[in-house]
């Protein structure tokens, strides 16, 4: 087992990738603090983990709210006494092109997708420093590197995640705290609900299949479990000498080292339209 008896806080883990990570980490021996704003679903995930023999609690907290975050980390430490792993996964697309963006939306989207990660680190790192060990994993987005639609606020936030991650990796390495970032390609999760709302299940599957064929060398969208694998790598000793890294898990889509190439024209349908 790669995470025997560790404790992980995973935000936004009621659905999608966060849930897949929670279940995978638990199957490797980890105890989990499941967090989400969808508390009932979070409780179901925690229940599944407990049924599998690991300990888990579900905590409702909005990661864009600093009081909520303080309470989340307080409850985690109260329950388990320590935190080895933090995944700042909660997030959602939002925003529009420049013409249709406004300040209020910008602030909301950045609070959720960027400020939340900062505040979570601020709350968790003192505990990690004390134990001189920690693994922090952040979620960025391929769109931050190479936009295929225009959602300014979201892409700015997810680019900000990369800067935050690198600075923290540099700052915290002497304390044995590793900080890395996953850049998912298109992954089949409820993240896409705002786009597929109103589609029949059949139409939705056809939409996903077409997107995978068109944009991904492996020819398909990814499954949440396929992000949980790399997250396990970063959370465990398999990454014993890896910190400060941006890992594109995107089925072969050109990543960070390549120059910006557009995979679809800026006019294609997307969020915010």
């Amino acid at each position: 087992m790669l995470l025997e008896n560790r404790v992980a806080v995973i935000t936004g883990s009621a659905n999608g990738m966060g849930k897949a990570m929670a279940l995978k980490f638990a199957s490797e021996g980890c105890n989990i603090v499941v967090n989400d704003i969808q508390i009932e679903k979070a409780q179901e995930v925690a229940e599944t983990i407990r049924a599998g023999g690991r300990d888990a609690i579900a905590v409702r907290a909005d990661v864009s709210n600093s009081e909520d975050i303080k309470s989340l980390i307080h409850q985690a430490v109260e329950k388990f006494g320590r935190i080895e792993i933090l995944v700042t996964n909660a997030g959602a697309a939002g925003g529009a092109d420049l013409e249709h963006s406004d300040e209020e939306e910008w602030d909301r989207v950045l609070a959720l997708n960027l400020k939340g990660a900062f505040m979570l680190c601020k709350a968790v790192v003192p505990h990690m420093k004390k134990q001189r060990y920690g693994k922090i994993i952040m979620l960025s987005s391929m769109g931050a590197v190479r936009p295929s639609i225009s959602v300014l606020a979201y892409h700015a936030a997810k680019s900000g995640i990369i800067g935050l991650m690198k600075n923290l990796a540099f700052e915290l390495a002497p304390f044995g705290i590793y900080v890395n970032c996953i850049v998912p390609g298109p992954i089949e999760t409820p993240f896409w609900d705002p786009l597929s709302a109103g589609m029949s299940e059949e139409k939705k599957q056809a939409f996903f299949a077409a997107l995978g064929r068109k944009e991904v060398p492996l020819g398909r969208m990814g499954q949440p479990e396929e992000i949980a694998g790399p997250a396990l790598f970063f959370a465990s000793e398999l990454s014993s000498y890896v910190t400060g890294q941006v890992l594109c898990v995107a089925g072969g889509q050109p990543g960070i080292t390549q120059s910006m190439t557009f995979i679809s024209s800026p006019e294609s349908e997307g969020f915010g339209k």
């Binding site: 396929e226 790399p230 594109c248």
Partner: peptide
């Protein structure tokens, strides 16, 4: 664990 990771 790395099924969706390629070309990096």
């Amino acid at each position: 664990q790395s099924e969706y990771l390629t070309g990096v």
